[in-house]
Amino acid sequence: MAVISPAVPTAAAKPRAGSFSALAAELWHDKAGLFGFAIIVLLIVLAFIAPLITPYDPALQSVAARLKPPVWMAKGSWEHLLGTDHLGRDVLSRVMAGARTSLIVGVSVVLLAGSFGVLVGLFAGFKGGRTDAVLMRLVDIQVAFPGLLMILLIVSVIGPSMTTMIVVLAITNWMIYARVVRGIVLSVRQTPYVEAAEVIGCKPARVIFKHILPNLTSPLLTLGILEFTNIVLAEAAMSFLGLGVQPPATSWGLDVANGKDYIFVAWWLITFPGLSISVTVLAINLFANWLRVTTDPQEREKRFARAKAAERRRAGRTAPTPVEA
């Protein structure tokens, strides 16, 4: 044990120097995080090159090939790997094409609503008093106002498009970030190290972004991921109502919504886009967990120590040399 402990802080401090390869090595050691990262990269690549590699045009209808099951089922064929929907469109092609819309909408809404909500929460929590009271009442008002009604209002005035959808979803979903952030800021603001930062003469911006914001990393990552799923489904609801993605374009959410009616006759319509959403969320979760630990020095050293201990155990098993001495 005595051999490990002095090595821990230096080794864990090394990647902080900003070397990219050190971070990559750290990710390589965390297999779950690596898996998540790989899936995310794969999805992004897929979203970009989908039009080039889809076996069929995702909007191409074929009445002759309606509701064909996936290839491994009794009536399935190699022509449509994941079957076809009620209009004879290839499900695989649609899942691939839908990735782009879902990812763009999900990520941009989370980022847009997140940054606005975080700013409002930081400001309200940091300023306190009347500023806080006014901002938080605004949040309450917006929370009380039915989101769908607001969406209907805005979209019917501006007209549906991808940009409109992103903006509208951001407008109806930023409040939760503001509330969560404000609560954390209120408690972190009382900690002596924030007072210390103020006493040594840090400007408010530095106090907020350097000393308070890092404490928000893990709750915000968790919240962002939960919200991502919500947004993908909200996008589906909007598209289903004809306010979001306009055919022939598609998205996972839209496919889930459309396939809902056929759930007993053709389970694959809802399953594959739904599965895509789950895998995306799982991948982001795994990667975010790695990211959370990496941004917290204390957690990071614990992980480092665990990895070292596991390494020693493995070494001890293969070659029984007296390691524990």
């Binding site: 002596p192 210390a196 003469g201």
Partner: peptide, 19 residues
């Protein structure tokens, strides 16, 4: 003015930013 007057805190566990 902070350059001329400083504060030493009571709780050494909470007064240093853990990150």
């Amino acid at each position: 003015l902070r350059r001329h007057m400083q504060l030493v805190f009571q709780d050494p566990y909470a007064s240093l930013n853990p990150r």
